[in-house]
């Protein structure tokens, strides 16, 4: 059995939370946007490109979560390292994972709803495209806040560049 320090195990939980919750939000949002886009393309095949674009937008939350999870695993000593994190740093890692995980969950679902609505608006009136993109991009900010805080926690919590 691999011997893992408690701090490193906590970092692993942080990584799971980061990618798990962010992926959940992103998946739900993207699923909704994809369902809407399929409906739009069924009525108007020219909507394919716009549909793909709106469906791709809620992907970013999963990428942020994935990135934080990878960083936690690399600098937490799970991937390719002998680092054994102290318990308190492990708790910081959970905080970092929760920051992007929950922010990504809300942001991904919100963006998915906005994207679904925008696809509907664009297929109804093609002039709505730029407004749709703008409205859909807005819920991205919450994920960016979560990502930023996760990075700051990792930097100043002793995980990155410690």
């Amino acid at each position: 059995m691999v011997d893992i320090a408690l701090g490193t195990a906590l970092a692993a939980i942080g990584a799971g939370i980061a990618v798990g919750f962010a992926g959940l939000g992103s998946g739900l949002g993207q699923g909704m946007a994809a369902a809407g886009s399929v409906g739009a393309v069924a009525e108007d095949p020219d909507m394919f490109a716009q549909g793909i674009l709106f469906t791709a937008l809620p992907e970013t939350q999963a990428i942020y979560g994935f990135l934080i999870a990878i960083l936690l695993m690399v600098f937490g000593g799970i991937l390719g390292g002998e680092t054994a994190l102290p318990v308190e740093v492990g708790l910081v890692a959970i905080g970092a994972g929760a920051a992007i995980g929950f922010a990504g969950l809300g942001s991904g679902m919100g963006q998915g709803m906005a994207a679904t609505s925008s696809v509907g608006a664009v297929v109804e009136n093609p002039d709505m495209f730029s407004q749709g993109i703008l409205f859909t991009a807005l819920p991205e900010t919450q994920a960016i806040y979560g990502f930023l805080i996760a990075i700051l926690l990792m930097v100043f919590g002793g995980i990155l560049g410690a």
């Binding site: 919750f21 959940l24 739900l28 699923g31 909704m32 946007a33 369902a35 809407g36 886009s37 399929v38 409906g39 739009a40 069924a42 009525e43 108007d44 909507m47 969950l105 809300g106 679902m109 998915g112 709803m113 679904t116 696809v119 509907g120 608006a121 297929v123 109804e124 009136n125």
Partner: peptide, 26 residues
Amino acid sequence: VIVTIKPVFEMFPYAYPNARVRARIG
């Protein structure tokens, strides 16, 4: 997760039909 996801699951089944309907509204 449960509180956040519940309303989304109510909306999910309508995403496809509503897009088709809105295309026809246009």
